[in-house]
């Protein structure tokens, strides 16, 4: 499956990873090579085969509704690149 530069820039935008224009060509070739190799999966007959997302064979564990956590905003903000008055701070977002 060919992966053109537009696709790469669409994907990089979805992933929020900036790619310089002069890199798009190179990266599209790299991704194309990997995806080409992955395309061998299309040979496999999978009709009627259920998709598997996890292998635990367990039941989803359930938690009791109790407050057992939180109450340490200083710990939460400890590593923040920018904070003020107990808030994380980011450039202004315009809705």
């Amino acid at each position: 499956m060919p992966i053109d530069k537009d696709t790469v820039s669409k994907v990089s935008n979805l992933a929020r990873i900036k790619i310089d224009n002069n890199q798009l060509e190179k990266i599209s070739k790299e991704l194309e090579a990997v995806m080409g190799w992955i395309d061998s999966l299309s040979e496999v007959e999978t009709s009627g085969i259920e998709p598997v997302a996890n292998v635990t064979g367990q039941k989803l564990p359930l938690r009791e509704d109790k407050v057992t956590d939180g109450g340490y905003s200083d710990k939460i903000l400890n590593n923040a690149p920018e904070k003020e008055g107990g808030f994380f701070v980011v450039p202004k977002v315009i809705e």
Partner: peptide, 18 residues
């Protein structure tokens, strides 16, 4: 770049992310 770790500071949030 919002809660912890490295941040490349920018004027717009989407640029900051990218």
């Amino acid at each position: 770049g919002v809660k912890y770790g490295y941040r490349n500071s920018q004027n717009h949030l989407d640029d900051l992310y990218a």
